[in-house]
Write a protein that binds this DNA or RNA. Structure first.
Length: 492
RNA sequence: GGCGCUAUGGUGCAACGGUUAGCACGUAGCCCUUUCAAGGCUAAAAUACGGGUUCGAUUCCCGUUAGCGCUACCA
């Protein structure tokens, strides 16, 4: 009945089902991650399904961004993407079956477009009850005869609906609290029904795609009994559910744009390493049990379990995300890190092909290694440490103010340039001795010269230890940069 | 308003009836030092409140409060 047929070794099948009404939200990213981890760990299958049944809100072009973000996170799916907008026949058919077996009914009530939340009434007084749980049409009395009907589910009168949730445990809801929800929208001219509603398309697809574990945001927990009822009405076995808590902003309200970036792709553009981001996300609402923080893919796969997922919403802490990034920047093997740095430099037009192999690669590797513990985000390589990769860089004004204020600086730098220019060997100790000698002869502390020199050769107050920097830059370049700076002093 | 979920330092997680309530981020201080990171050490900082159950509650139960979710012909 469908194109999905792959079976994992274990029979476990999960799905990630974003709706293309926006980009991939970090909460969605984490849901995708948990699905992926579970599928991989259980040797199952993950399917990607695009839930685009609302033609008015969906923007097809957004799918691309979602896919891009998933790929960046390294979350490869096995089947799909499937588009619900292309599967309407399935929903229509399921709807007719439900109508035929008495589980659904035709509703002629006029659509009540949602006006937007609980905030309607200002000041005192209880907000008014917004809906009638049981539709009067369910007894066969259309309220507005002659209009195109929608198809609603006939929720049982009385009784409770239970389901098993791998993270929240056994849950039960009273059927009398569940409204007769819409399955199929009313049709336009010439159609019997319109597009399927969420509850309908999700269940039909999850059944059709033989999903065994539904791992999704906890905002769906209240929808679950409706879906369970649907599974049963369709004669299908419901899957195991696993609701994962929501991600909040610093003020504990649901994470949204006013809290900062919520688009996974924004973090990619900012220069976070995907593994760092993934590690951070994994630890939001889940912990392996011990005290570990630093978890690479294999650790994650080895330790992940649905039961370990927390029931509490968690706050997205950017400071910790950044910490993870600095950790990965340092702890990744240099060969793992290099491609990301190369990509960044390329993007900023600083990359030189000569660094791709041989001695050039060795130099590049050594330089990045020296810089990495001081870098927070990838773009720092081309901004803060630009002088290591290019001769075109600015001298930072604050650095000048801090380390060039002593009037002896120009004289010292000139002498140093001369001394360095004649060094027969160019290495750490040679630079060290020559510099200290110049400082001594000039009657100043070595630190004064060292700091002033750093500003001259890399343009920043902050950089790796000076003599290491000199070695990496090379004799010719160091001397040239020192001399280039001298005229500036005479003018001012 | 109704229904539901949740509640450990500022933040993320541990402790799943008995610990001086642990780890990490962040914060502060110290060490290291050639700037800045990194690294090392130290410190401040929590069981929301009130009732039970129990020899003993962070842990189990009830209530309160707070936050969040659902309550749409959105997903």
């Amino acid at each position: 009945m469908t194109e999905s047929s792959t079976t994992g070794q274990s029979g476990v099948r999960v799905r990630f089902a974003p709706s293309p009404t926006g980009y991939l939200h970090v909460g969605g990213g984490r849901t995708a991650l948990f699905n992926w981890l579970y599928a991989r760990k259980e040797r199952g299958v993950m399917v990607l399904r695009i839930e685009d049944t609302d033609a008015e809100r969906n923007k097809p072009e957004l799918v691309e961004g979602i896919v891009e973000a998933l790929k960046w996170l390294g979350l490869a799916w096995d089947e799909g993407p499937f588009y619900q907008s292309q599967r309407t026949a399935l929903y229509q058919e399921a709807g007719k079956n439900l109508l035929a077996n008495g589980s659904a009914f035709l509703c002629h009530c006029p659509p009540e477009k949602y006006v937007g939340g609980d905030h309607a009434v200002e000041g005192a007084g209880p907000t008014q009850v917004r809906r009638i749980v049981r539709c009067s049409c369910r007894d066969g009395k259309p309220s507005t005869p002659g209009t195109k009907p929608a198809l609603r589910f006939k929720v049982p009168l009385g009784g409770i609906t239970k389901f098993k949730d791998a993270v929240f445990g056994e849950r039960e809801f009273a059927n009398d609290d569940i409204e007769d929800f819409v399955l199929l929208r009313s049709g336009k001219e010439g159609e019997e029904f319109g597009q399927a509603m969420y509850q309908m398309s999700v269940v039909v697809d999850d059944v059709d795609m033989r999903i065994t574990h539904v791992i999704r945001g906890a905002d769906h927990i209240s929808n679950t009994p409706k879906q369970v009822l649907l599974y049963r009405a369709m004669g299908a076995q419901e899957p195991i559910f696993a609701h994962v808590p929501l991600i909040l902003g610093a003020d504990k309200s649901r994470l949204s744009k006013r809290h900062g970036a919520t688009d996974v792709n924004m973090y990619r553009r900012e220069g976070f390493l995907p593994e760092a981001f993934r590690n951070f996300l994994a630890l939001l609402g889940w912990a392996p049990g011990g005290d570990e923080e630093f978890l690479r893919t294999n650790d994650l796969l080895g330790k992940f379990s649905l039961e370990g997922v927390s029931r509490t919403n968690s706050v997205f802490d950017r400071a910790k995300l950044e910490w993870f990034n600095t950790q990965y920047l340092q702890k990744l093997s240099i060969e793992e890190l290099l491609p990301a740095v190369k990509e960044q430099l390329k993007q900023d037009k600083l990359w030189k092909e000569e660094w791709a192999s041989g001695a050039g690669h060795e130099w590049f590797s050594k330089t990045v290694d020296m810089l990495r513990s001081r870098v927070r985000l990838l773009p720092d390589f081309s901004s803060w440490s630009r002088a290591f990769f290019s001769d075109e860089f600015e001298i930072d004004a604050a650095a000048k103010a801090k380390f060039w204020k002593d009037e002896r600086v120009p004289g010292l730098l000139e002498k140093l340039a001369d001394a360095l220019a004649t060094l027969p060997e160019w290495n750490h100790d040679a630079c060290d001795h020559a510099s200290r000698k110049v400082a001594e002869e000039g009657g100043v502390k070595a630190g004064l010269l060292i700091n002033a020199t750093r500003v001259a050769i890399v343009g920043q107050a902050v950089a790796p230890p000076l003599f290491d920097t000199m070695v990496v830059l090379g004799q010719e370049r160091v001397v040239r940069r020192l001399r280039a700076v001298l005229p500036g002093f005479k003018k001012s």
